Simulated assay, not measured.
Amino acid sequence: MTTTPRRALVTGGSGDIGSAIAHALAAQGHHVIVHANARLQRAEAVAAAIRAGGGSAEAVAFDVAAGASVAAALERLLEAGPIGIVVNNAGIHDDAPMAGMNDAQWHRVIDVSLHGFFHVTRPLLLPMSRQRWGRIVSVSSVAAVLGNRGQVNYAAAKAALHGATKSLAREMASRGISANVVAPGLVEGTMLGDQFDAAQVKALVPAGRAGTPAEVAAVVAFLCSDAAGYVNGQVIGVNGGMG
């Protein structure tokens, strides 16, 4: 897989999947901007590890749900040149059955995953258009496809990314810009945590195991490559056959 080195922003880049994506993009030769919300030191650690491995990276922190903060941060980043790749990976869980879900649980999950996608992606579109090249990848979840008890807010936020991405792909394809979704299933790491034991994973996943962050990152990296230019408006599951 060949691709031209570019600047790549990975939101939620300090988590398990986000850091794997950051490393995968750095391995393609991109300069990676590793984003965190409040824990800048975690993003700094990921960026430092990339640099230690011979890659190029920096860290940045802002709340993707706060439009004004995002706009100010991106304005500063764009002063150094266009950002050709954006991976909207930031997302949070705040699980509860809908009958017992409070307003804050609903709104914060929607704010981070859906409004964050809008706040981060919109300012990058015109600079991408001027370059006649861009890659937008949003990380969703199998919950957006199948649903999941206790995650009405999370499934709603992630499923909304599917429709938004398909529409955005139609708007931007003529300018050499693709927009796609990667929807992981059960993936090893802190987000999976201790929610499922080995027997539960085997029962839920036809492959009989949880995926790895690297397996998700490999698909994202392909979608961000020059070779994937004709893949557009797609929702690609990385879920071991769950659906």
Score class of each variant (00 low, 15 high):
residue 5 P to H: 09
residue 6 R to K: 15
residue 9 L to H: 09
residue 11 T to W: 05
residue 19 S to R: 14
residue 24 A to R: 13
residue 28 Q to A: 11
residue 32 V to E: 05
residue 33 I to C: 13
residue 34 V to R: 07
residue 34 V to M: 10
residue 55 G to C: 01
residue 56 S to P: 07
residue 64 V to Y: 07
residue 64 V to P: 08
residue 67 G to E: 13
residue 71 A to G: 14
residue 74 L to S: 14
residue 75 E to T: 11
residue 75 E to G: 10
residue 78 L to P: 00
residue 83 I to E: 08
residue 88 N to C: 14
residue 90 A to L: 04
residue 93 H to K: 15
residue 93 H to A: 14
residue 96 A to L: 11
residue 96 A to C: 08
residue 107 H to C: 11
residue 111 D to G: 00
residue 113 S to C: 13
residue 115 H to M: 10
residue 125 L to P: 10
residue 125 L to Q: 04
residue 127 P to Y: 09
residue 128 M to D: 04
residue 138 S to R: 01
residue 139 V to T: 15
residue 139 V to S: 13
residue 141 S to C: 02
residue 147 G to P: 14
residue 158 K to S: 00
residue 163 G to K: 12
residue 166 K to P: 04
residue 169 A to I: 00
residue 173 A to C: 05
residue 175 R to W: 07
residue 178 S to M: 02
residue 179 A to N: 10
residue 182 V to E: 13
residue 184 P to N: 06
residue 189 G to M: 09
residue 190 T to A: 15
residue 192 L to V: 05
residue 195 Q to V: 12
residue 197 D to K: 11
residue 202 K to W: 01
residue 205 V to W: 12
residue 205 V to I: 10
residue 206 P to E: 06
residue 207 A to P: 10
residue 208 G to S: 05
residue 212 T to Q: 14
residue 213 P to R: 03
residue 216 V to K: 05
residue 219 V to D: 07
residue 220 V to E: 07
residue 222 F to M: 10
residue 230 Y to M: 08
residue 232 N to W: 03
residue 239 N to Q: 06
residue 240 G to R: 14
residue 241 G to D: 04
